[in-house]
Design a protein around this nucleic acid. Structure first.
Lengths: 374, 374
DNA sequence: TTGAAAGCGATACCAT
DNA sequence: ATGGTATCGCTTTCAA
């Protein structure tokens, strides 16, 4: 009933605690095989398991890495968390998961708490422009790796970043649309104050310019830029954007790039509210390639992030023994997964009602199915 | 740079460590206000933070609860994890999250590990029929609360369970379909060896019988019952099921109840592969009500689990001071979220091609929007 | 190759 | 109302 300690193992094996400790920590070389076996036997017999608190108190470090994500409710972060755990498991680490809800204060509290817990380091999935709120802990020696947030000027030197090249991602997404002949494009996202948004949006603009289009002439949606939206609400952002863009006075876009898949899916849902059809009336490109992207109807064209590889890299950086060069950034190239939510724009310009458009294509179906179409 | 200890605080405040400790643990009543203030000042000045490892070593308990889910890649578990964290935060606990991937051995290892970590208790989201692999730790005093897995005969007495009434859930789902006039129904799930599957399937059968239908006469899908499918693969299960049911010799169902939303969404994707339309050619009911259910096109009718409430309850049980009565079960009532993936069955029987069927339906069925009307 | 013993930092009992 | 101090279980010199 009461826990077995290293002393009891030592006694059972007829050796001292030090020797058992040596075995536990892989220092078997200085040990006669017979001793080793006796200890191993004793450990098994007694069902001994080292007390981590004691070990940590002594060594000062836990076999743990912290992971802070905006919200595991978002499947992208859920999948990433899972991949990081896989990587950590391989090196005998566990992962302490925290949801920041994109709240800087909460983020700071979690970082402090994890630091107190003696984590080896933290993988921070934040897109806040500044890391000032964490400068204190970082200066105290915390090993911090940011994910999906390229290094910014002003970041502490010791912070490492692992992310995709967002500029390339945004470019690929928009270029795909322009190459299909789209000429009215909108970039849809929530809060402006996010680092990856900036990169993705710039890539989007670059692609437009490359196609001879003027980014500033595109329909814009600036509904809720100030609201610090969380991640579960990402879908709401997309949905609201769709409503705004397609029921305003301005001529709506024929193609849209969303900041992430949840927003893209929300946007699709918004289009559905309006009786519009994705991939036919409007083309939509997402970002992340969550599982649901391929499951959606129509399957969503999206910019894929190689999360398994990124998780492994992030963990490597967290556990790296020696300090890395200052301001180290690991940048991966994203790729585009082309699916059916994108297609060349409808030839008909200024189609009257969506229902009419749909009917035209599907061999004069009675317009009864366009759920809720007004 | 070096960590501040309780001794340093004590010295700075001109008191003994014991007194500081008393303050830290809320025993302020035996302390003159002036002392209290001096200590508080010292703590703030020095930026003192208690060392958790030391505290845990001394008290034997951490301020932590374990959470084991099949996979946070599945949005249902992601959302649940988030809710549990919210609840835990309110009482100053952190959550240690682990993905079991529905692997009993891995589940056991995690439970042992969490126990070693000194967690207050564990919320286990498992649907394994037996808890035998955990009997050992449980008998050593672990407080275990199972979620989404009603208590089974043979479970250790001390295990508490929090779940919805799966029988009711399965019933509501199937009854919704029968009341719409569906007479050929299939229950789609992966592994049979899961507790909630059993309950949901029984409820499904009960509803069929209540409608005068014979469950054993329904089209069945028994493709991969033996494979211990994980949770990310849940969608594949659904997709495969759709392919099998709609391209075999047997007449396919007009309505389907899936074990969970991911499977339902996979099923919808499978239908799409085959050119069939959800909510028109086939009605689909999911289970869980993940965010994506409402985002899907068409929005998915599903059995909702009240996860926020369930998370709070599960945490209560984990942290309960005194032991609960033996074999305690908390059972919540699920509710049906009716959306557009379900509708009365097409009138045409023996359709040739999907497209023809679709055309036939919408031609002859004008009032196709009033879901549920007979 | 093995052992003895000094802590890591907080708690709680027992004095005062 | 406050202080002294043994203790939790392990790691790690240093000595044998």
């Amino acid at each position: 009933m009461t826990r077995v300690t290293i002393q009891q193992v030592a006694k059972a094996a007829g050796v001292s605690p030090s020797t058992v400790s040596n075995l536990l920590n892989g220092r078997t070389e200085r040990m006669v095989p017979a001793t080793r076996d006796r200890i191993t036997r004793a450990i098994a017999d007694l069902g001994y398991r080292p007390n981590r608190a004691a070990r940590q108190l002594r060594t000062g470090r836990a076999q743990t890495v912290g992971l802070i994500v905006p919200s595991v409710g978002n499947p992208f972060w859920g999948s990433f968390a899972r991949e990081l755990e896989v990587a950590a498991l391989e090196v005998g680490c566990s992962v302490l998961l925290c949801n920041s809800e994109r709240n800087p204060e909460r983020e700071r509290r979690y970082v402090e708490e994890l630091w107190d817990d003696g984590v080896r380091g933290i993988v921070l999935c934040s897109s806040l422009p500044s890391l000032d709120h964490l400068a204190d802990v970082v200066s105290r020696g915390l090993r911090l790796v940011t994910f999906d947030r390229p290094a910014q000027p002003g970041d502490p030197d010791s912070v490492v970043s692992v992310s995709i090249d967002n500029h390339v991602g945004g470019f690929l997404a928009a270029e795909h649309l322009t190459s299909q002949g789209h000429e009215r494009l909108t970039f849809v996202s929530g809060s402006l104050a996010s680092v990856n948004r900036t990169g993705r949006f710039r890539g989007f603009c670059t692609a437009l310019e490359a196609a001879g289009l003027d980014p500033s002439a595109m329909p814009m949606w600036t509904g809720i830029e100030d609201t610090p939206f969380g991640d579960v609400e990402a879908a709401d952002v997309g949905r609201q954007a769709a409503h705004a863009l397609f029921s305003g006075d301005e001529e709506p876009p024929t193609g849209v790039v969303a900041i992430n898949d949840m927003t893209a899916l929300g946007f699709c849902r918004g289009l559905r509210d309006l009786g519009l059809r994705v991939g036919r009336d409007v083309s939509v490109v997402g970002f992340d390639d969550i599982i649901l992207a391929d499951l959606y109807d129509p399957p969503l064209t999206t910019v894929r992030q190689p999360i398994a590889r990124m998780a492994a890299l992030a963990l490597d950086e967290v556990l790296a023994e020696e300090a890395r060069e200052a301001g180290r950034s690991v940048l991966l190239r994203p790729e585009l997964a082309v699916r059916e939510s994108t297609a060349p724009p409808a030839l008909a310009v200024g189609s009257t009602t969506p229902t009419a458009a749909a009917a035209a294509t599907s061999a004069s179906l009675t317009p009864s199915q366009n759920g809720g179409a007004r």
